[in-house]
Nucleic acid binder design. Structure first.
Lengths: 246, 246
DNA sequence: CGACCCTATGTTGCATGCAATGTTTCGGGC
DNA sequence: GCCCGAAACATTGCATGCAACATAGGGTCG
């Protein structure tokens, strides 16, 4: 008995399944739900006050995205990414980001250059003025997103977006570092330079190099000592950002 | 009231949703369902003698795979791929197949070399002895599949598999050619040579080149005169391979 | 003859019931 | 105290009902 039904503005925007998906995905990417946490369809349905159908759909999408795995009779669990996964993920990402940078270089126009520069400079200011994990990640993602948008290849974008999601998940459980943020921006700057110089080959190399270095730094950090990860397996209420109880 | 229920051997093998998905995917890839054909959930459910739930799930997976698109209140339709899609698809595929070839080269062992050689030679025999569209496509897919299997990168495989599906769909609606089959095998042979020589860089280049040439040949063929494609939009019974009515 | 409204039809997304199946736990026997 | 069996429990996948909504088609009125 839903108190009120979300209206469907034709282009499925606020369908329950979508909202459930977005909410859960957000929780996973924001590390509010951690690898190993169980995703019980019935429990989540009750929590969100909706039926199991849309929740089931959302969970299946998460699984399809590689953000969760399906454990036969124990509900789905948030995916656990190990170091090998990360290596593989970044190997693919290296090739794809390189390609994106090359394509983007060939399609760059003044408007996009300005947007890229603005993003980059804001990111540089951010990193220079202390370390804000959340903001850094946002800026980083925005930068890469803009590049693949400029590249203008639907299928490349889709593939990259998948990789990004999983990579993001990996970062959460394995690593975080202020120093890395600085290096990331520096490397972004290098890709930007090659792109605005119109050198597609160099842009491709720089972008690939950026991801490769990311992978190496990540491996080293993990080898040195992985983040402690408290193991929990029970369902908790989705930790809200700040939720007035209704 | 299903006459009999498919048993679930834990590792979801013969679930109704899976079977529906496989059946529909097969129909699309085999061109029995063509771009533009409508996929009505209720109709398909009746056809297969199951309820709408698993069918709905299957259709959503197809959409997620890019093999179908969602038209708001008219049911889903088999995706239509135009030339631009193909170009984009093959651009990405070029990078990924190249990467796969490089990785595979680094992990090759005697067993895999033998398997590759066997596949290749069978393919050469096939092409030399006339043209069998179906068999050619099978061999081609098997070859690429084996390479990405040897490459041993889960996420790369997943990405490539997606691309493959859509590319396959594109080939059906746009193109077929005996000459192309010959060239494909020849280029496969070149990749194989580089791989067995242990030259990962050359393998990557050869694989990329293979896909790039494919893309070019495809574009030219389409420009010269696309295959006639009868437009149909009604739901027909899934054309069975050879179906005794029950 | 054309524009318009109104109904019939088809699709969609959600809720819910249910049987099969696997897991976990708890109690009893050794 | 430990092992084994059984029942309670949770999850799963499928079937089905249903109300909202959109489109198409036809009949009517101007």
């Amino acid at each position: 008995m839903p108190t009120e039904r979300a209206v469907n503005p034709v282009t499925g925007g606020s369908l329950l399944a979508d909202r459930a998906y977005e909410e859960m995905k957000g929780a996973v990417l924001a590390n509010r739900l951690r690898p190993g946490d169980s995703l019980s369809v019935p429990a989540l349905a009750v929590q969100m006050g909706i039926s199991r159908s849309p929740v089931r759909e959302a969970v299946q999408r998460l699984i399809h995205d590689g953000l969760a795995t399906h454990v036969p009779h124990r509900g789905a669990v948030v995916a656990t990414v190990d170091l090998e996964d990360v290596r593989q993920l970044y190997t693919v990402r290296e090739a794809l980001e390189g390609l994106a940078a090359r394509l983007a270089t060939e399609r760059l126009d003044a408007t996009k250059v300005a947007e890229l520069r603005a993003l980059l400079e804001e990111h540089e200011r951010l990193v220079a003025s202390g370390y804000d994990e959340k903001r850094h990640i946002e800026m980083d993602m925005a930068y890469h997103r803009l590049i693949r948008e400029v590249a203008g290849n639907t299928h490349l974008s889709a593939a990259l977006e998948n990789i990004h999601g999983k990579a993001h998940l990996a970062l959460h459980s394995l690593w975080r570092s202020p120093e890395a943020a600085r290096l990331a921006v520096e490397e972004h700057r290098r890709v930007f330079a090659a792109m605005t110089a119109g050198d597609a080959e160099a842009a491709e190399r720089a972008a690939g190099e950026h991801i490769r270095r990311l992978r190496i730094r990540l491996s080293q950090a993990v080898a040195a000592g992985p983040e402690p990860r408290p193991d929990r397996s029970t369902v908790r209420p989705l930790p809200e950002e700040a939720a007035p109880e209704s």
